[in-house]
Design a protein around this nucleic acid. Structure first.
Lengths: 226, 226
DNA sequence: ACGCGGTCTTGACAGTCGTCAAGACTTTCT
DNA sequence: AGAAAGTCTTGACGACTGTCAAGACCGCGT
């Protein structure tokens, strides 16, 4: 799969996949190729997180690297190809964020405390990257190109949240009245609002977020006593 | 105030506010001016809702009118000025959307039913305009220019939601455990998720949204029985 | 009927964008 | 060492953007 991408991107090296002699060599080259791709995609991610989708140009991205702007078309066929790659790279760093908390917590109260604190901490330290995520998700409301990737990442985020919530419920010995989708949408709404206020200079936004998450989790807990 | 704007925008007509003789005349002209401004801003809103902020140009907006692209700089000093005016115009149509339901409902159950149904209906009929709202709100995460207006509109939306929620609580005879901000963020998160799925072709998105809103309102109701 | 001021069109400007071809440089293989 | 393949730079292209000046058009008041 990586071979196919490589060949498709570099028409000056149209070697066939049937080559068995220099297999080791091309493998190494593919690794180098993929490595630089990731490096450039990372620089693109930083630029996008700083300027937003609407204002990020390929030249601007290249200025955040040690290379010139032309190199981007050597490693990516297209601007859309680059951004798609960025989105996928973002997912990897994002979608297992709270899993260690789930693994290490030993009670409902501890999970609630640590999860809400972790969300607040994420807001404080990763606000630019998350505003980019919301920006790209919004782009997918207008153009179809990113939509499949966005939906897939959103699904993974939902599952991540559900791992937290269902673990929390099993600790507390109750079931959840909300669907995984609804639980994710609620927490995501809280985070997005906190992000807006945080970036607008509200210093209390993270703490308010933490308190709201705790209150929502408390609300889930009560639901089962009907 | 409108006079000041008019003069600021049209340097070829720098008449003073001290004019008392043709007061009636200039008043009429100001009305015409404001009327056309609103008409152009409306066309801009339609274009923005269709293409999104990143892809909307002044020439594209003008093509949705009977005029040429130059007229936009006659009525608006600047692209930012135009979009700011669009945002304000959007607010007027949006921020009192559910107030008549609040006024006409006569029980908690009726309010819950009608409000959730109205949100689902909004999703079905006004999806493009709402994706624009989310787009512009996201832009304000990157550039400061719209931020004040966005925060103001968000505040008004929060108050609108709170009018629904507090009315619902007073009908049911209980208090609400969530702050107005949290309640708004939760419902907004649900709507945004539904919007994404709706625009991605999920025909059930509106119905799922309705059910989720009902479930959230039910959750609020239970909270007070602790 | 004439002139004037508000309204609108036209065409151009400087800048930026994504894209790509041509070639220079670097690394690797024989 | 020489050749070949991979990597990167440079500079240009056409298209598109926001902006604005010059002037045409039109309706109104006198």
């Amino acid at each position: 799969m990586t071979d196919v991408d490589h060949v498709a991107v570099v028409p000056s090296a149209p070697y066939q996949a049937v080559e068995t002699n220099r297999e080791r060599v091309s493998r190494r080259q593919v690794d180098k190729f993929a490595e630089r791709r990731a490096q450039l995609a990372d620089a693109a991610l930083q630029t996008l997180a700083e300027l937003g989708y609407a204002r990020t140009s390929l030249r601007e991205i290249a200025q955040n690297t040690e290379f010139s702007h032309g190199v981007l078309h050597y490693y990516f066929s297209d601007k859309e190809d680059l951004i798609t790659h960025c989105v996928r790279q973002y997912e990897a760093a994002c979608v297992t964020r709270y899993d260690e908390i789930v693994a290490s917590a030993s009670s409902a109260g501890e999970l609630k405390r640590e999860f809400s604190a972790a969300m607040a901490q994420t807001l404080r330290t990763d606000a630019p990257m998350h505003r980019l995520w919301y920006d790209l998700r919004n782009q997918s409301l207008f153009e179809e190109s990113f939509r499949a990737d966005v939906l897939e990442i959103d699904q993974h985020r939902e599952e991540m949240i559900w791992r937290v919530i269902s673990r929390y419920a099993s600790f507390g010995g109750f079931s959840i009245a909300l669907s995984p989708g609804a639980a994710y949408a609620i927490l995501d709404g809280l985070f997005q609002q906190a992000l807006l206020h945080h970036l607008a200079g509200d210093m209390d936004a993270a703490e308010v977020l933490r308190a709201n998450v705790v209150r929502v989790l408390d609300g889930l807990e009560v639901r089962d006593s009907r």
